[in-house]
Design a binder for these strands. Sequence first.
DNA 1: TATTGTATTTACGTTAACGTCAACGTTAGT
DNA 2: ACTAACGTTGACGTTAACGTAAATACAATA
Lengths: 127, 127
Amino acid sequence: MSATQHQRRYSISELAAEFDVTTRTLRFYEEKGLLTPERRGRVRYFSAADRVRLRLILRGRRLGLTLEQSAEIIDLYREPEGSKRQLNKLLATLAERRAHLEQQAEDINVTLHELAAVERKCRKALK
Amino acid sequence: MSATQHQRRYSISELAAEFDVTTRTLRFYEEKGLLTPERRGRVRYFSAADRVRLRLILRGRRLGLTLEQSAEIIDLYREPEGSKRQLNKLLATLAERRAHLEQQAEDINVTLHELAAVERKCRKALK
DNA sequence: TATTGTATTTACGTTAACGTCAACGTTAGT
DNA sequence: ACTAACGTTGACGTTAACGTAAATACAATA
């Protein structure tokens, strides 16, 4: 099925260091069901899939999303399945998310322009 | 100096309704020093300047900023003044903010593309 | 064997950004 | 005078997203 499977696993501190978060954060995300590391004994080992999910979670965090919202988005990434009704609901959710993101993009644009204006004034004042 | 001065004032519920926030929120923002309504007796009356600040705060909120961060940004909008050292520090702050915003913009772009891919799959599955 | 390093669970603490009463005052209309 | 609508000041409650500390386990190493 799949090509060369890299069965690479990550210890909690490894993953924490790579993404610059604490181990507490990773355990917390597991507690919330966002990460599902394998256990060897009591010790956690995170998979490549966990790593991807973590990346998505942190991206959401940078955008000011709650964990629940990030979880919802990650959920969207699964193969779209289900009844016609379910698929339509999924489309609606996607539209909502997009609207949010576009609003944010607009906010960013406006702010960047305003900050640029401040910067010009500032440079002018420096001369 | 200034042109026709609209000395329009806003009651707390007026402003709350316009921006779709609660009065509690506005009082909270005042408490935090982000809004400084005039008082007639005990009653608050918000100025056009307050209205602008509120707009900025809410924009920041949509971007996931804390009130403190929004306050900092609003602060940047005052006339750039002070020593050369102060101006340089201001420039540094501006650069920081811009970096953040550009990171967010990038995150949004990536996410939008990913969601678009999901949407395509979804529409395909609907046929 | 003792220490160091890394991991675990449990559990209480913290901060931001409000929500939610409670008790009360003022003004306009009936 | 009574009610309704709108305002006020406390002050305690709530939720998310971790921080932090305590007690414990296990492995490698000096």
